[in-house]
Design a protein around this nucleic acid. Structure first.
Lengths: 206, 206
DNA sequence: TAGATTGTTAATCGATTAACAATC
DNA sequence: TAGATTGTTAATCGATTAACAATC
């Protein structure tokens, strides 16, 4: 089992999980099928079954999948049975928005610290959290064995922050800085740059 | 030319453009090569040359690419020679962050209107803009022939807003709502859900 | 010139889909 | 039982890479 699962498959699992949760919690459904799920997500049913088959057999012929069970299995596969502490670097407008976002907890994450290098921001309260001096970043990450970080600093500072995070053991980074970041092998990185996303779409505009 | 360019190729062009801009503006370089660009982005040089070859010949043997020229060509291909008006729906913390983000203008976009349905938010100023009543959404989009939108509302409201946007001619949507949106063919959609991105990475965490 | 690098072809690699036996 | 749907195989489709002639 699980010899070498393609990254593209892993990337779809959270989307399946999200839609299944919606089916269960918002619509009160008990069972679903690869066909129904695929139709809702614009993905072929064959692909969904193939993706899941990398990890085991979760359905029943004739009746499909028990949603709650499949959700449990996906949470297991994605290591979401624990809550992950996340360190947030950058307390600007975006950091502010992330710190106040209440959608993390329900889905397995908790922003537990916020850092900034601006003396005017250090000490400010952000929805339960207090902005800390980025000088203490290494100390907090090592002492708490933090593995995940979100970067919401300017492009100029992003690589330096990344290097510091990686040096003290961060293994997963979600970066909102509009720049490609260099990380050593074994460190996962995910980007979110609204402009890159918009620019992809303007190609299709007349 | 340009018979049917794969979407995955289009998606890389903004990243090339971003890095080329960095090379030119921040590092003052004049020329580059597919090898150098690829090394900086973690992409093979062959892939970069192949991607570009879909659109023409932009380099010279022996010397590579003139950066400013290639930037111009990419801007042309991606339809970034004009500035695109974008309508932002949702004036919560995230909408606030987007409205204040100054990185749009330089790269081809301008958030020109912000809407919300909360009477407490309507009328608030957000960096040049005033939050408008979402009841006027259709009027503004049609009268100004807007083609692009950013959705920063809750999951509950996102599909309804999408339907309204599409009905009045929006063709590209960047959505921050944690939900899959259904749109008719011809409408491009791009998602940003931090939790989906984090969940993909926890798979790789011990 | 010699070295470097392009654009392109063909080969390889990987992902998606169609189809169906198994079975609930 | 009859209908539905799984998990899986094989075929198809598409994307990436290696290699190199052309040429700056």
């Amino acid at each position: 089992m699980a010899r070498e699962i393609p990254d593209i498959v892993i990337g779809r699992l959270p989307v399946y999980l999200r839609e299944l949760t919606r089916l269960a919690e918002d619509e009160g459904k008990i069972n679903t099928s690869s066909h129904e799920l695929g139709k809702r997500l614009g993905i072929s049913s064959a692909q969904i079954r193939k993706d899941l088959s990398h990890f085991g057999e979760f359905g029943k012929q004739g009746t499909g999948y028990h949603i709650k069970y499949l959700i449990e299995q996906l949470r297991d596969i994605l290591h979401l049975t624990q809550e992950w502490d996340v360190v947030l670097v950058g307390a600007g407008y975006l950091g502010h928005a992330l710190a106040h976002y209440h959608g993390f907890h329900r889905r397995g994450f908790r922003i537990s610290w916020v850092f900034d290098n601006d003396p005017a921001k250090i000490g400010l309260k952000m929805d339960e959290l207090v902005v800390q001096d980025v000088a203490d970043l290494e100390k907090v990450v090592s002492e708490n064995n933090v593995k995940m970080a979100i970067i919401a600093v300017s492009a100029n500072q992003a690589q330096a922050i990344t290097d510091r995070l990686v040096a003290v053991g961060i293994q997963s980074i979600l970066s909102y800085a509009p720049i490609h970041l260099n990380v050593p092998p074994g460190v996962e990185i995910s980007y979110s740059d609204p402009v890159v996303q918009l620019q992809r779409m303007t190609y299709y505009l007349a």
